[in-house]
């Protein structure tokens, strides 16, 4: 019985993780296709790491397969690093001269500003952090 309980709570954690990645993916599509913000180069890299998570995590749900962490975590970490760099750039901590996207869409243009601190790169960083945290929790439950 306790084994069954543990199994279902692992499923819940993975489900939550999938939900976070799906909402983020949809949010990014909403920004570009509904609000018509052009995605900059760094946003594209973050999407490249985010979109596969939606599929991989969903596959891991049926039936629950905790080894999904092994495949999902590298993507999430790569996405997190890109998001972290993007935030540094956005905040002006990394000087503009080394930013890779001076042509086309600027990576530092401010599109939205929720509650005074939530920019689009910040939203991305938060969701990658949440995904990583949930994956690590799942991993620790497995090894126990």
């Amino acid at each position: 019985m306790s084994h069954l309980n543990q199994k279902s709570s692992s499923w819940n954690i993975l489900f939550l993780c999938w939900l976070v990645s799906s909402v983020s993916a949809m949010g990014s599509l909403f920004f570009s296709y509904v609000m018509e913000f052009a995605p900059c180069v760094l946003c594209w890299y973050q999407r490249i790491f985010l979109f596969p998570l939606v599929i991989i995590l969903a596959v891991g749900l049926f039936p629950i397969d905790k080894s999904v962490v092994k495949y999902a975590l590298p993507l999430a970490i790569a996405g997190w690093l890109t998001a972290a760099y993007h935030n540094l750039l956005y905040a002006g901590i990394v000087p503009e001269s080394i930013q890779p996207c001076s042509q086309g869409v600027s990576c530092t243009e401010e599109y939205i500003d929720l509650f005074g601190f939530l920019s689009i790169p910040m939203l991305s960083l938060l969701s990658f952090s949440t995904i990583i945290a949930l994956l690590i929790i799942l991993k620790m439950r497995t090894t126990k």
């Binding site: 499923w11 489900f15 939900l19 969903a58």
Partner: peptide
Amino acid sequence: THIIFGLTV
């Protein structure tokens, strides 16, 4: 779980 997943989608 299938139902939960399907409904969420």
